[in-house]
Amino acid sequence: MEQIDLTVIWAVIIAFGIVMYVLMDGFDLGVGILFPFAPDESSRDVMMNTVAPVWDGNETWLVLGGAGLLGAFPLVYSVFLPALYIGVFLLLAGLIFRGVAFEFRFKANRSRYLWNWAFAGGSTIAAFAQGAVVGAYIEGFETQGMVYVGGPLDWLTPFTVITGLGLLAGYALLGTTWLIMKTEGELQAWAYRLTTPLLLAVLAVFAIISIWTPLVDDYVRERWFGNIRLLWVLPAMALVCAWLIWQGVRRRQEGIPFVATMGVFVFAYLGLLVSKWPYVVPPDHTIWDAASAPGSQLFLLLGVLFVIPIVLAYTAWTYWVFRGKVRPGEGYH
């Protein structure tokens, strides 16, 4: 009994950590994805300045997620990472380049264009790799007992390419709506223009995933077309949010598109979780198979419960301090 409780608590914590990561690093990766297409160099300065104070705090959620998985659900850690070996490397390399680009671009003069490319390229690769991870999770992993036995590129399928591109579009959408909120003038107008096409791309990918998965995966079909009708609230809410984005762009609202985009992500994410619950290493292993010993989960829980509220408070405070529009020539560097 006690074990079940702890495992579920940990599932909630990890799920929460992932969604925090996706939303927060999502918009700053999105800004990176949009970087090459920006109207001009001074817009790029502004774009980078909108995320400069917060990006590395955003990224820390990824590290916490990785370590937390090893502590609470080691099986996830020891199957996902070997299965996604090459993808994980690309993700890390992308994040490294983008991290140092943040630091050096502002201080560079002649070499600035190189750091522009590092920033844009790193963000794009990292976003695509994360999308492919989601796709690979949906498709499941070939395991024998507790080890991954598939090949090195099993994760790279037409489906994961689509989810990769989908997340790329999704992060870019978070990026444009973030910029709508944080900037003004020409740059903001540009962000407004891009939002609708990106929204359509995201919806197209959602549609493909929603049709494809139930067709190939009995478990998912069973879940959605079984007897829990309430689940359909989730996609419905996601569509409502999409409509809000659309309206927000038409009416030139500044805050709503971003908030609604976060809504799209949250509802899609919850939809994904209920599709697979309680499987974390589909198709064979549930969260209880993947869990570490109760003593270990408890030991770690104490520290994490102490730290997460502090981090949340600090995060909220940072965003508060840096609220408001960012204008050209203003920066934190």
Partner: peptide, 18 residues
């Protein structure tokens, strides 16, 4: 830095890169 404080470690250094 104008207003508030950034979190990025490197920005505590002010020397130009090149």
């Amino acid at each position: 830095p104008s207003g508030g404080r950034p979190k990025r470690p490197f920005s505590a250094a002010h020397t130009p890169f090149d």
